[in-house]
Each structure stands twice: as structure tokens, then as C-alpha cells.
């Protein structure tokens, strides 16, 4: 069994960096899906099986906080864990994200070790070889 991961960020480069970093963790990944903003992410989440979402905070169209709030209000999506990857380190802002339903927040720049720790703590380790 392997993870299906959705990466939400308006930057092509950051989406690519996140998926490459996750590959470096050697965790089993079945599928990477990508969205440019919260609206695109919700569309994918309604159609595809996703185990975990990594999202940016500040994005056009729909930001990461509004994405989390929308997911929490949608019965089929409210159990999917969301991790916010952001440059912000403000404790109040990070608490707001956790209170809204984010499972964790990672600061940019991030390392494979940090991403691995977050994934395994939320989903557990599956068939790592």
C-alpha cells in the first residue's frame, strides 16, 4: 500500500520541490497530484482518493486557510489530513491554521527528514523498503 498525495501551491517550482523531497524520504508513494490553488484542490479531492494534502498558505483564488475550512465543512473530505507548508513563523497565524483543522505546519525551507516525520506521524509507515 502506498500514499496518494495532493500538493497545492501556485508555484510550479515549489510543487516540484515538495514532490521531489517526498521521493527522497523513500516513503511509498502511489500518486502525486497537483493543484495551483484551493479551488483546484477541492475539485481533485472530490474526484480522487487522497491520503494527505500538502498546501501552501498564500495563494491566489483560494488560500490554504480557506481550503482547510472548506474541507472541514465537507463530509467526505473532513478526515483527510492537511499539512500547511508556509514561510510564515508567526505563532498566532500557525495556531489559527491548527485551530481551523490543519494537522501540522512546516516552515519553508523544509527538509526530507521533516516531511518524512510529518507523514509518518500522521499516516504511519507503510511498507517502507
Amino acid at each position: 500500500m502506498a500514499y496518494s498525495i495532493l500538493i497545492v501551491d501556485d508555484s510550479d517550482i515549489i510543487r516540484s520541490m515538495i514532490s521531489r523531497t517526498i521521493r527522497l524520504t523513500k516513503l511509498p508513494v502511489h500518486t502525486f497530484m497537483e493543484a495551483h490553488n484551493g479551488v483546484e484542490a477541492l475539485d481533485i479531492l472530490k474526484r480522487e482518493w487522497i491520503d494527505i494534502v500538502f498546501t501552501d498558505l498564500n495563494m491566489p483564488v483560494m488560500n490554504g486557510l480557506d481550503l482547510i475550512k472548506s474541507m472541514k465543512q465537507t463530509v467526505d473530505l473532513n478526515d483527510i489530513p492537511v499539512v500547511v507548508i508556509t514561510t510564515e513563523g508567526n505563532a498566532n497565524r500557525l495556531n489559527e491554521l491548527i485551530n481551523a483543522g490543519a494537522r501540522d505546519c512546516l516552515r519553508k525551507p523544509f527538509t526530507p527528514e521533516k516531511i518524512r516525520d510529518v507523514i509518518t506521524s500522521i499516516l504511519g509507515v507503510w511498507d517502507v523498503k
Binding site: 508555484s11 498564500n58 508556509t86 514561510t87 510564515e88 513563523g89 508567526n90 516552515r107 525551507p109
Partner: peptide
């Protein structure tokens, strides 16, 4: 710019 700004402000 985004990453420098966020880390600088923090």
C-alpha cells in the same frame, strides 16, 4: 523572495 521575506519577518 517569498521565502526570504517570511523568514526575515519572523
Amino acid at each position: 523572495c517569498n521565502i526570504i521575506s517570511g523568514n526575515f519577518i519572523t
